[in-house]
Design a protein around this nucleic acid. Sequence first.
DNA 1: TCAAAAGATACATCAATAATGCACTTTATA
DNA 2: TATAAAGTGCATTATTGATGTATCTTTTGA
Lengths: 156, 156
Amino acid sequence: MQLKKYTDYGLRILMYLGSVQNSELPDKRATIKEICETFKLSANHVNKVVHHLGRLKLIETRRGKHGGFLLAKAPDEIRLDYVIRELEGDEAWIDCHNPYCVALPACELNSIVGRGKELFYEHLSRYTLKDLLKNSAQLQQIFLTAGQSPALNRSA
Amino acid sequence: MQLKKYTDYGLRILMYLGSVQNSELPDKRATIKEICETFKLSANHVNKVVHHLGRLKLIETRRGKHGGFLLAKAPDEIRLDYVIRELEGDEAWIDCHNPYCVALPACELNSIVGRGKELFYEHLSRYTLKDLLKNSAQLQQIFLTAGQSPALNRSA
DNA sequence: TCAAAAGATACATCAATAATGCACTTTATA
DNA sequence: TATAAAGTGCATTATTGATGTATCTTTTGA
Ligand code: SF4
Ligand code: SF4
């Protein structure tokens, strides 16, 4: 019972964009390479998440030289329930088929857990990317220094 | 993002006991074999869940001939949040260490998701095994007939 | 016009862990 | 004392998430 790293990576990417695309640099693009260096992640995996975020129209991707991606919406328009539902995949938390469970016709459990799941998402729906950027200054600082270190290593 | 089958099996076992140990047969013991035949499950896996439920003092197990197990508490004293927390394992839904995430010092996400998780369990805490036995009569019927069929197959 | 830099796409492989199986032990009781 | 039950530890399999490789396409600037 844990969110996929894939989902968390998606949120990290959005946080990164939200913190780097501040009022002074509203059109700043980030690249996959940059994200990977900051968070020490696999480029391929991040690639897939970025692509997914692009399909969801949460970010705008651009290929080619000087390409990259940036937020396609204001941070307060990006709701966490939506992001997590989409990245995580919105399956039932108990699978009563595969294989079929005999109790199903009389079972109350699946609906109780299902309602609990909805409460989880309702809670998330009260937050947006903007809430994740509360400590924006500190995040900027972190991302700045985290992005620096591999540069030092490259020359070593 | 799904509960483990292990957890669901535990709840099935409790439902089975609750429905079979009715007012007429309050001391009726069930066996692992019986559960497996009813739900078509692996004896070894059920074995482990039964053992776990025994350690949690939710059921009372007895070894040896004419052994088996029965509920150790009234159904309305067995809260679903407790059962699911224990069987599922109560880990954080996002792991910010392993490997360490640079954003952690400034990140709001883990606490938002953590609160959502608690809301999920708070919801479950409003239900007990008794609620799962709402359709007790139908469950009894289901378990009775489900337990019969393999008996027919054994002689075939 | 071509080379380089970026994301897009498809497929392959690895790793983690849940799920299951097997063998054997211990205990109760008829 | 044989048998039927749960207890225990270890091995194996299956699932799927995580990661890697290769190649393609798009964009842009020299
Ligand atoms: S016990 Fe209820 S929730 Fe669990 S698999 Fe069966 S029908 Fe679904
Ligand atoms: S982004 Fe936040 S929640 Fe996700 S791993 Fe990093 S610190 Fe934890």
